[in-house]
Structures are given as C-alpha cells and as structure tokens.
C-alpha cells in the first residue's frame, strides 16, 4: 500500500503544457515589439526637442516581491529592507478555521541590503523546515528607450534546512540540506500602468528520495523519485490602479516532468498598496512555502482539478490567503 501511494504519478500533458507556455511567450514578445516601435517614434520626436541621454525606465515594479516571486527590481545602493511574509492555511475548511486564517501559518522574516548599485543581498528565515536562505540579485540590463526593450535581472537563492536530525533519518549528509534556485527575470514596463515579467528558473536539490529496485550480485539500480534539476517558468504582471494601488497576478508552471511527486502549478492574484517606505501585498494563491526553490519542487496545492496516473481525480482550488510587507530604509 505504502509503495503504491509513493508511486502515484500525475498525468500532466507535457506537450500541451510546453505549447501553452510557448504561445504565451511568443504573444508576449510580439506585444513587446509593437509597443517598442510605438514608443520609439515618440522617443524620436522628444529627442528632437531635448537631446538628452535616455534614462532607464523607472518603477517597473514597486516592490522586490510580486506575490511569490521576485520582481526585476533592484533597489538603489544603500537601501536596507525588512520583509515580513505570511501564508495562512487553505481556505477549503471554511468557517471552522476561518478560511485558513486560524490554521497553522507559515512565516518568513528577511532582511536585504544593497551594498553597491544593481546588487541586492538578502538573508531570511522561514518557519517551515526551519529554513535559512541567502540570496543575491543583480540587475544586468535595464529597459531604456532606444537601447533595450526589456530589463533583465539575475536572482539566485541558496537555502539550508536546519531541522534537528540526530538519527540522520532526514539527511544522510549535511549537503543534503541545501537547495539552490537560479532564475533570470525578464521584464518590460509596457505602459505607465502595466508591467509584465517572465522568469525561467532552475532548482537543484542535492539529494532526492529513492529506493533500490534491484540489488543482487549483478549490481544495483536505484529508482529516484524526483530529478535533481527542475525547470520552471513564471509569468507575473502588475496593473496600477492609482499611484499607490495595483493589481497583481502571478502564475508558476513546473516544466520538468518528475518520475513521481510532480509539483503543482501556482496561480496567485491580489492587491498591492504602497507608501513611501512600505509596500503591502494581500493576495490568494497556491504556494504555501516561502522559498522559491521549495515552492517550485514541493507545491501540493493545485489551482486546477487534475487526474492522477491511477485515474483518481483530485480537486483543485486549493487557495490560501497570504501577505507580504516590506519596509525600506533609504
């Protein structure tokens, strides 16, 4: 029985999934080019009046977070930031735990600092898995009229599971506790109100659960339940409703098909409220973890209904309420 549950596979049509992602990306690029050419003409007209060097576009996003993902934004040198993030339980229990608000919640507290321009370093601690994470973010290209239609930022995150494990039942080696997450964030501010970003990522886990399928004099074969490297892509957008309020949406799609334990995609949406030193994001989504790599690998909440390999139907709609608060000192 135990073996069976372990071996349950989710049937996700990889071809269809790749096609959808592809179509989305192409649509994004096409949209990008039409707006880019439209903006270039206005830029040319303005340049004729004041011959000044074009400056990078500002405020593509208001915060370093867009719900569960990092945005392309890297704050100015000397900025110190504190983040408080909460993810409550899923809303499915209804009134009994007040739609998840009184269920067990996950919390991350983090700090970030920009020692030089374009670089942001962060350190955080998450309740789940007693996870420490260190991150680095570097702005490679900034969207500038006539120079670059998009902004590109690299984001890397290294996390360490620090749960006590005296019997070594969780981790055989210390390095098994480490997870790395690397992503490239490509963003464009289309209009004053609309910004969209696409970020492909790769998550690497040093150890995966597995078991022996053959162990005799001819040799051993090991069945690994997950792959060591996992690719995923996320698309996120912001639409400003006013100077301080914006709508946010974020979608994360796993791309690598895992042998078992396929992670679910994530759909989240909500509001952002900004002041001079704070941003406050309030939203609903599927990701309950507060580390990008862990979320990409282990998300069990699905936004959509799906069918498992055995034919079992699993209901989607596992949403939870969450918020991100950031405080900037600069």
């Amino acid at each position: 029985m135990d073996f069976k549950t372990k071996d349950v596979k989710l049937t996700i049509n990889i071809g269809k999934r790749l096609l959808t992602t592809g179509v989305c990306l192409v649509a994004c690029l096409l949209l990008m080019q039409t707006t880019a050419s439209a903006q270039d003409t206005t830029a040319a007209a303005k340049d004729a009046v004041i011959p000044a060097k074009a400056k990078p576009v500002k405020n593509t996003f208001q915060s370093i977070w867009i719900i569960d993902n990092q945005t392309v934004m890297v704050p100015v040198k000397g900025t110190f930031e504190m983040d408080i993030q909460h993810r409550f339980g899923t809303v499915n229990n209804g009134y009994s735990d007040f739609w998840g608000l009184y269920a067990s919640s996950n919390i991350r507290i983090g700090v970030d600092y920009a020692p030089i321009n374009n670089l942001y370093l962060g350190l955080g601690f998450e309740k789940y898995d007693e996870l420490w994470d260190g991150s680095a973010k570097y702005a490679i290209i900034k969207q500038t009229r006539g120079e670059s239609p998009v902004s590109i930022t690299y984001y890397g995150n290294l996390s360490l599971d620090t749960r006590a494990d005296p019997t070594k039942s969780l981790f055989s080696h210390y390095t098994d506790r480490i997870l790395s997450f690397n992503e490239i964030i490509i963003a464009r501010k289309f209009t004053d109100n609309l910004s969209i970003q696409v970020s492909p990522s790769i998550t690497h886990q040093n150890a995966v659960p597995g078991y022996l399928t053959k162990n005799d004099s001819t040799g051993r074969t090991i069945f690994e339940e997950m792959k060591h490297d996992h690719f995923a892509i996320s698309v996120a957008g912001r639409y400003k409703l006013g100077d301080a309020t914006a709508l946010l949406i974020d979608y994360d799609q796993p791309l690598t098909k895992e042998p078992t334990n396929n992670p679910n995609p994530n759909l989240s949406f909500g509001f952002e409220f900004s002041t001079s030193g704070h941003t406050f994001q309030l939203f609903m989504g599927n990701y309950s973890l507060l580390n990008p790599g862990k979320n990409a690998l282990f998300n069990t909440n699905s936004p959509f209904d799906y069918t498992q390999t055995g034919g079992g139907k699993v209901k989607g709609g596992k949403f939870l309420i969450g918020f991100n608060i950031t405080r900037l000192w600069n």
Partner: peptide
C-alpha cells in the same frame, strides 16, 4: 511629479 507626490508626500 504628481505620481511621486501622491506616493511620498501626500500622507
């Protein structure tokens, strides 16, 4: 200016 005023100054 207006957008920055509303974000940073108006409060």
């Amino acid at each position: 200016g207006k957008s920055l005023w509303n974000l940073h100054c108006a409060s």
